[in-house]
Design a binder for these strands. Structure first.
Length: 235
DNA sequence: GTTAGGATGATCT
DNA sequence: GATCATCCTAACA
């Protein structure tokens, strides 16, 4: 319990490494499918600093990823794919570079990026990020937001800010042309390896809790507060 | 500042 | 019928 508190404190209070005076422009080259056709533990930390673009008729929203979690398919007790393929998780077993969107807690959507070769159900949960374009639209979708940093501070918040729902389950994130999909992932400005931290995944209990497969950019204010797995109490 | 508890429904056993 | 890869608000220190 003490350790939990300490981890949480550490994640929140680490020194900021923000670059308010950044001069180098974001690299807007889309990531190729080969980027995702790798083991999840390679892809997950490499996604930090990348920019997910979500196009809608209302306009684009772009989020710079600051926190992700890796889920390693049928061998990982924390993964939705642990018990094998079902209608819900089918997209995870498909080709890499697609969105796996699920509905949870009766209210929220969360989004993964499918990794690994087809047939291997790897996924990276997008947990948090910094809205770098379309903040007005994101704020309209998230009226309870108090400040820019919390617009996408948490997986369901990120999905809400980007207007993501089950209709986007299976969407291609590496389209041949931008018009072919509502998603793209840009090269962005990858986080330097020295700024990347990792620790146990949020909300994952049991044997899956042992894996330190949550990755985040140290000190970034948009990283969500860590919560250890807590079994729901009966009432 | 922190914490407890309710909201709400698809999914799976 | 239990379990969620969660969020928000009210209440409290």
């Amino acid at each position: 319990m003490i350790d939990r508190e300490r981890d949480r404190h550490r994640a929140r209070s680490a020194r900021p490494v923000r670059s308010d005076h950044m001069t180098s422009a974001t690299d807007r080259t889309p990531l190729p499918r080969a980027f995702f056709d790798r083991p999840v533990l390679d892809v997950a930390p490499d996604l930090l600093g990348r920019v997910l673009v979500r196009d809608t008729p209302d306009g684009p929203v772009e989020v710079r990823l600051t926190e992700v979690e890796a889920y390693a398919g049928t061998a990982d007790p924390g993964s939705h794919a642990y018990r094998g393929r079902t209608a819900r998780n089918a997209v995870m077993f498909g080709p890499p570079g697609h969105a796996y969107v699920y509905f949870t807690y009766g209210m929220w959507h969360c989004m993964n990026l499918v990794c690994c070769p087809e047939g291997t159900a790897g996924g990276v949960l997008l947990r948090a990020g910094e809205i770098v374009a379309g903040a007005d639209l994101a704020a309209k979708r998230r009226p309870s937001s108090r400040r820019p940093a919390d617009l996408a501070q948490g997986p369901a918040r990120l999905a809400t800010a980007l207007g993501i729902d089950r209709a986007l389950d299976g969407a291609d994130v590496c389209p041949a042309a931008p018009a072919d999909s509502p998603f793209r992932v840009l090269t962005g400005t990858p986080a330097s390896p020295g700024a990347v931290r990792n620790g146990p995944r949020t909300g994952v209990g049991g044997e899956g809790a042992a894996h330190p497969w949550r990755f985040w950019i140290d000190g970034d204010p948009t990283v969500s507060p860590y919560r250890a797995h807590a079994p729901r109490r009966r009432r």
